[in-house]
Design a protein around this nucleic acid. Sequence first.
DNA 1: AATATCCGCAACCGCTCCGAC
DNA 2: CGTCGGAGCGGTTGCGGATAT
Length: 324
Amino acid sequence: MGRPPCCDKSNVKRGLWTPEEDAKLLAYVSNHGTGNWTLVPKKAGLNRCGKSCRLRWTNYLRPDLKHHSFTPQEEDLIINLHQAIGSRWSLIARRLPGRTDNDVKNHWNTKLRKKLMKMGIDPVTHKPVSQVLSDLGSISCLSTITTDQTQAPNTTNLIFSNQPDQEVQSQFIKPPENINVHSHHNNEAASSCSSPSSSSSSNISQQSSPPQVITTAAAVPPPGSSFDWSEFLLSDPVTCTEFQHPLNQYEVQNQIQVSNNARDEEFGIGGYHEESVTKRQVCDKLKCEGTSSSSLGDDSFVDAILNRDSEIRAALLLVGSTNY
DNA sequence: AATATCCGCAACCGCTCCGAC
DNA sequence: CGTCGGAGCGGTTGCGGATAT
């Protein structure tokens, strides 16, 4: 038996709030504070679900909220934080005084995501789209391996099916999030399907079984042609599956990739974009390393991630400068 | 001017988290 | 330790205004 609903949905008003309702809620919360949200509507004389009241208050009525559009500085901060911690909207919003998680989320989905796409940057991984496609090529290599190893319906196996169903198509639209191109096993896949000693550019010729999608593809953007990545990313998923990698973009590694993997290794998790990673997991990890747990509020949580990210990137730059 | 399409935002839904018991 | 229930989060939906045809 599931949990009963928080309120009788058939008997409460839904949809847009009227000015009268806003006034009632505002008056009540101003005088009594929020307290137990399930009791607020009754005490405030509103025929609304407590959850709806809380949302209206936090997203619209709170007196400290900004209602003007986002500044370029705020946008930059959102992009940077999203790159570091993924879609933890509430955490990102706490870095932006007067903004709510809903504000940030909406702004990301309607403006910033498209802006990055237009710049040729994948908004999920924040990597160049060409690299994401390279990573997908690597993952397809995994699919040929894992199909034999396990029948578990993991995403990687589904992605490159020749007969994509609805689910497969939707996953293909946003592959990095669902496939997690920078997770451990994908790295293993990438390395297991390429010669250990080979340079990345030589991997192509050594691949015995290229991904199905790629081999059956027809449309290859000619070198030097104008190609709109944003249009590609927004295009029909079926069309997407017909796209073929330019071979010279088949290189697998770069420092950002390594950075992501190193960061994942650091926390023993499959990347910050992975759904299963909770704040607690990261905090626990940091706690084990001597970071005071009491100091790990949400801001500290973000700080810890940003600091660790900076450290890893700095270390990689150092390694890169000595290797090349 | 009428209609279609696009876009942004507010609100909802389902789920997890977390403290109380 | 397990259960309960409120709080909070992220994803998604749908409405309404703006713009294009």
